[in-house]
């Protein structure tokens, strides 16, 4: 189980960063979303994994609970990352509509010579 989660975090991170390194705003937004998943799962997993032990107190018997704190942190992180994504999407859209161009670089980078105009 741990291996599955860790590899998922790794793959999401790698894919997210690769897309962030693209030159157009939309892939960057996609990459940011993937990276957000990776970070949220990472934070969540730092409370260690446990299945069938939600942190809902049982008044009648002694049972195990998983760590509630990372969950609380990740819950707000999910909502805040929605806010962040929305702002970035808005900026990307505004930039595209204003300049009819969705490249992320201010000036055409010399190293990326294979680009189209």
């Amino acid at each position: 189980m741990e291996l599955l989660v860790a590899s998922a975090v790794g793959i999401l991170t790698a894919a997210g960063i690769y897309l962030i390194l693209r030159r157009r705003s939309f892939p960057v937004i996609l990459g940011l979303s993937l990276l957000t998943y990776a970070v949220n799962v990472f934070l969540f997993a730092s409370g260690r994994l446990m299945s069938g032990a939600p942190p809902i107190l049982n008044k009648y018997e002694e049972v195990l609970y998983t760590d509630p704190l990372p969950q609380a942190l990740v819950l707000t992180a999910i909502v805040i990352s929605f806010g962040m994504t929305a702002v970035v999407v808005m900026i990307a859209l505004g930039a595209y509509l204003s300049s009819r161009d969705d490249r992320t670089a201010l000036n055409a980078e010399p190293e990326g010579s294979g680009g189209d105009a």
Partner: peptide, 25 residues
């Protein structure tokens, strides 16, 4: 999204991301 970067650049970006992914995982 058009193809803009040459293959070496994409390979370099890929290498950076894979290393970062390995680190995070």
């Amino acid at each position: 999204t058009p193809v803009e970067t040459p293959l070496p650049t994409r390979l370099r970006d890929g290498a950076i991301s894979v290393v970062a992914g390995l680190g995070a995982g």
